[in-house]
Design a protein around this nucleic acid. Structure first.
Length: 271
DNA sequence: ATTCTCACCTGCGGGC
DNA sequence: TGCCCGCAGGTGAGAA
């Protein structure tokens, strides 16, 4: 479920409400991807100062240290004054004096990791190699273009790697490449200035529109306040193998790239 | 140094 | 109805 837009929509849905909250209790369910890295007791009494985002990670900043939250493939957050009793897939709960934050994650690819500060080794390991934020001014066409030139990998893989630009996952990579008219299998270095410019713009617009629409989902995405996204209604290629292209009516194709599915229009998207 | 493959885990839908 | 298989939004680790 969660690519950058879903994570950002989730952040916005509870950041203001949890800011200033004092933690009164913390509990864990089954193990997540990585260990928490601190005792649950040490979280009690801490105050949440704000919620930032880096790529697909949320950073719950505390008055001492911070909690890194990743939603993995199937994670979602809820934040409300009162939440129902924990279910079998609720694996992290943070009770505060302003509400109850909960991570629900059936597949447990997500994580909650504590770090003492922004220079902590665990943060450097998880965030250190990440590329630029696509919705910030730092995401320049010149750097993006130069980055493409230096990679022999297929453009879809380059986008997913997060080393050039963060936050583009399997759905939005396919959608952005469709908008830019580039086939996902195209070698990144073979993308010239014109197409690089189109792709740069497509990444920004597809992510920004998805954020504005409240996030996307094939199934059940909802933000921390329970509202649902509806970007899936406007997907041009993702999940549409065999269906007619919205532009030219040719059947959308699906290919496997590194264990992931890519979708493209064989007519509108050139190699 | 890049690039590729695997692994982690659960649920769901399709085919038999 | 029920079982088995393949697939699903991510990403670090380790192997080529």
């Amino acid at each position: 479920m969660p690519e950058l837009p879903e994570v950002e929509v989730t952040r916005r849905s509870f950041a203001d409400r949890i800011a200033g909250a004092r933690i009164v209790d913390a509990t864990l369910g089954k193990p997540l991807r990585w260990p928490l890295g601190c005792s649950l007791e040490s979280l009690v009494g801490r105050r949440v100062t704000c919620v930032d985002r880096r790529g697909k990670y949320l950073l719950l900043r505390l008055d001492q240290g911070l909690l890194l939250v990743h939603l993995g493939m199937s994670g979602s957050l809820s934040f409300a004054l009162n939440l129902p009793p924990s279910g079998p897939h609720d694996h992290f709960d943070l009770q505060t004096d302003r509400g109850h934050l909960r991570l629900h994650d059936p597949r447990r690819f997500g994580a909650v990791v504590w770090a003492p500060d922004d220079d902590a080794p665990v943060l450097r390991k998880l965030l250190g190699h990440l590329g630029v934020e696509p919705l910030s001014e730092v995401f320049s066409l010149a750097d993006f273009s130069a980055g493409l030139k230096s990679s022999r990998a297929p453009i879809k893989q380059v986008l997913l790697s997060g080393k050039l630009v963060v936050g583009v996952g399997n759905i939005y990579a396919s959608e952005a490449l469709f908008l830019a008219g580039i086939r996902p299998t195209t070698q990144a270095r073979r993308i010239g200035p014109l197409r690089a410019k189109r792709l740069h713009a497509a990444i920004r617009s597809v992510l920004a529109e998805a954020v504005a629409a409240g996030g996307s989902t094939l199934r059940d995405f909802q933000s921390a306040d329970g509202s649902a996204g509806h970007f899936q209604l406007s997907a041009h290629v993702y999940g549409r193998a065999g269906a007619p292209c919205h532009t030219c009516a040719a059947p959308i194709k699906m290919v496997r790239q590194g264990q992931r599915s890519s979708f493209y229009c064989p007519v509108c998207q050139r190699p």
